[in-house]
Nucleic acid binder design. Sequence first.
DNA 1: ATACTCCCCTGAGAGC
DNA 2: TGCTCTCAGGGGAGTA
Length: 274
Amino acid sequence: MPELPEVETVLRTLETQIKDLEILDVEVLWDNIIVNQNAEFIKQIQGQHFREFQRRGKYLLFVLDESMLIVHLRMEGKFYLLDPSIPRDKHTHVILHLSDGREMRYHDVRKFGKMALYPLRKDFDYPMLANIGYDAFDERLSAEELYQKWHKRSGCLKQMLLNQRFLAGIGNIYADEICFSCGLHPSTPVTHLNRADFDRILVETRRILRGAIKAGGTTIRSYTSSLGVTGLFQLELKVHQRSGKSCPVCGQEIIKMKVGGRGTYVCVKCQKKQ
DNA sequence: ATACTCCCCTGAGAGC
DNA sequence: TGCTCTCAGGGGAGTA
């Protein structure tokens, strides 16, 4: 699943490919991908150009001339830039016809992805972003604030990392890696974490996400090469999807368990529950 | 306000 | 071999 590093990779790759191109026309082949009214979406987006490329958490933000196009890839959303002569496959749901003659195709096996178009505004108060907090790299986000907001809440560490309301961008893969890197068991109740733990969590979160961006993201079944870009961070994963293999630190066998209803990988020797 | 559950979808893998 | 069943998974909507 594309998380912050994969979304960042997709965004930067697209920027080199489609910046300042015009959207001539749009075909929507599966209505539920579009959040607002289809007819409106198609009418408004025609004739606009891709001007700026931004990201907030796992959301892609495309600044057009007069609108903001916001996309969430969810589980398996991908963009392909292809020549129109290449046959469309059955998982292609939205097609933007670009002024350089190529098609920008939104491809999504699960059809979970979403895109919406809103009039451009400076305050970023778009409905689709209403429930997400600071991006993990936002300088305004501090361990102190995270601590204040979280340390009295119910739930465990992994649930906190996956919650996008305060800290946005982490998904299942990086949540596991962050927990491991901090030496904390993912099911540790948040109330058991102290102020120093929050410092470490935020530092490790940023370190791991930065490393993953540098590697071009993680390529697993649900996130494979989009736009010809294949991430390599899967080679650096320490616990995620490594059940049965040995912990790179202590050699203990990594186990898979459920935490907060999510498949979770953990080294129970390095990650003691607190 | 917070905390659950359901729902959207399809393909992979298990079980028979 | 081939069918049917179960499950994963981000996040919004609805409900307690």
